[in-house]
Design a protein around this nucleic acid. Structure first.
Length: 513
RNA sequence: GCCCCCAUCGUCUAGUGGUCCAGGACGGAGCCCUCUCAAGGCUCAAACAGGGGUUCGAGCCCCCUUGGGGGCACCA
């Protein structure tokens, strides 16, 4: 129903698509296990997930691990963990299987070889015997002559019989795609429209390496086709080889998916992408571009998803704080934007805080508990649950619970005497006030908000100081710190004796100050 | 050097030829609330990169310039 009304309002988007979001989509997130899952990958995965859920389709995880040299042990697991943490559950993947497996490219080697040779037989590709050294020389020569770097075609025109003989003899070779030399190739991107590149600017790319493994160009096209992928979300770094990919698909006679090239994320300054240096700098400020760090930095999957979703997706009006389910409702691939986006970490803080404030108390409590535990504190679930309403709107990140509420779970607090001295007053004056506070609270049967605040206000009146001065002393005495959740609500959660002891302690500290 | 992509407040964006002296959000400034810190409420400052077309009319369409980004591997 939603999709239909969307289509009615924006019938063809600007490039004449027909109802791109209505039928079930099969989409895939296909990382290479060579590093960490970062923001860009998380967004690509998210959009895939949203489209799949929106259309009642399938979200697939495929591991593109054909590069033997760059393989990083544990990376694949990190991607799976990252997706799980984000709540982006896939329907088919290497660890859970599915009808189109295997989902790891290293388990599909024969498939690629078969297809590569099929292209050779059909005249769309050819074996190439040029050595890496020769190619290196060729390139530096081209560089010297200020030519465009490209394969010079030496093996392209080898008689097929000779090529076949040399291959049969076991001569080391790769297979290159035979890009047409005349004309131009036009490929269509949903967001950017037609993209045309002169064929002379498209190289004869290697599609099967001499070690027998395919390159991305072959493997991704073959898999997307065999896995029935309907929409391909990928980074704009693929735009340059986009026509190549379309040519490969056409050589096979396969149908094209809908292509959506997402722009990359720029560093906060907007000048270039995140480098090692900026990544380290962000980490110093408590931010990271890697999902593996997000949890320990106190970020929630809800906050991260929401933040990342809106970099490259404009929702026209209304509430932009959304859960995954709400994003599914509102998602519309035709509203994605093609321009590069600068990362804005303070906006992540905003979304994270918003989602924390939206959480049900028991949920928040469960998420907060590990931060206390990791800090060596023993927390009572009952007390924690009662602390939640006092700190919730103060939290930007989950680990902010420590500065605000750790003191609740410590047997005693030791205020710095300097903090006990009220603004514009001496230690002696503060000591006197503390003593009066003690005398005010001591007679109360319970120190609750309702019972304690009126007499305390009266005391403030009597003393002629400001509420801030008097309450400030009490705050530091009880919590040990000058910034805390609301005072009376906080005291209500502690035993009466504890509070009185602490006020007494403050009196002593001030006297000796 | 060659190829490709992108271009609205500082940032993310809405805008699909008149309803735009350009709307929202983050951040910033101010005020209110107030026991600290927040949260919340209200208000303010802040943009169509430049130049040519097309059109009665252009932020929206076309071209050029400029700026930014990405790519030019037997990596993905």
């Amino acid at each position: 129903m939603k999709a239909l009304s969307c289509a009615a309002r924006r019938p063809n988007s600007k490039f004449g698509e027909i109802s791109v979001t209505s039928s079930p989509a099969r989409v895939r997130f296909a990382p290479s296990p060579t590093g960490h899952l970062h923001l860009g990958g998380a967004r690509t995965a998210l959009y895939n997930y949203l489209l799949a859920r929106k259309t009642g389709g399938k979200f697939i995880l495929r591991i593109e691990d054909t590069d033997q040299k760059r393989f990083v042990p544990g990376a694949e697991q990190e991607f799976m963990d990252g997706l799980r943490w984000l709540g982006l559950h896939y329907d088919e993947g290497p660890d859970i299987g599915g009808p189109y497996g295997p989902y790891r490219q290293t388990e599909r080697r024969e498939i690629y070889q078969r297809h590569a040779w099929q292209l050779v037989e059909q005249g769309h590709a050819y074996p190439c015997f040029c050595t890496p050294e020769r190619l290196e020389q060729m390139r530096s020569l081209q560089m010297q002559n200020k030519e465009t770097l490209h394969y010079d075609g030496t093996c392209r025109n080898l008689p097929p019989e000779e090529a076949a003989r040399r291959v049969a003899n076991g001569e080391r070779h790769v297979i290159r795609f035979k890009t047409p030399q005349e004309g131009a190739t036009t490929a269509h991107d949903l967001l950017r429209g037609d993209i045309t590149i002169e064929n002379k600017n498209i190289d004869d790319y290697v599609i099967l390496k001499s070690d027998g493994w395919p390159t991305y160009h072959l493997a991704a096209m073959v898999d997307d086709h065999l896995m029935n992928i309907t929409h391909v979300f990928r980074g704009s770094e693929w735009l340059g080889t986009f026509p190549l990919h379309v040519n490969i698909l056409r050589a096979f006679g396969w149908q094209e998916p809908t292509w959506i090239h997402l722009s990359i994320f720029l560093k906060p300054s907007g000048k270039g992408k995140m480098s090692k240096r900026e990544t380290a700098e962000a980490m110093k400020d408590g931010y990271s571009i890697f999902t593996k760090d997000m949890g320990s930095l106190g970020y929630t999957p809800e906050g991260v998803n929401n933040w990342v979703a809106l970099m490259g997706w404009g929702i026209s009006e209304g509430d932009d704080v959304m859960s995954l389910a709400e994003m599914v409702q509102k998602f519309d691939i035709t509203r994605l934007t093609p321009s590069p986006a600068a990362i804005n970490f303070t906006k992540l803080d905003h979304f994270n805080g918003e989602h924390i404030r939206r959480m049900a108390a028991p949920d928040l409590a469960a998420r907060l508990k590990p931060y206390f535990t990791n800090a060596g504190l023993e927390v009572s679930d009952d007390l924690l649950l009662r602390v939640i309403p006092l700190i919730r709107e103060r939290l930007v990140t989950l680990d902010d619970c420590l500065p605000f509420a750790a003191w609740f779970f410590r047997p005693q607090v030791v205020p710095d005497p300097k903090d006990l001295v009220a603004k514009n007053l001496t230690a002696a004056q503060s000591a006197q006030i503390a003593q009066r506070i003690y005398e005010t609270l001591a007679p109360l049967p319970h120190i609750t908000h309702d019972l304690a605040e009126p007499p305390m206000r009266q005391l403030v009146e009597e003393l002629g100081y400001s509420p801030g001065q008097v309450f400030g002393i009490l705050r530091v005495a009880v919590t040990g710190q000058s910034v805390s959740p609301p005072l009376f609500e906080s005291m209500e959660l502690l035993p009466r004796e504890v509070i009185l002891e602490r006020v007494q302690q403050a009196v002593e500290l001030l006297k000796n100050a």
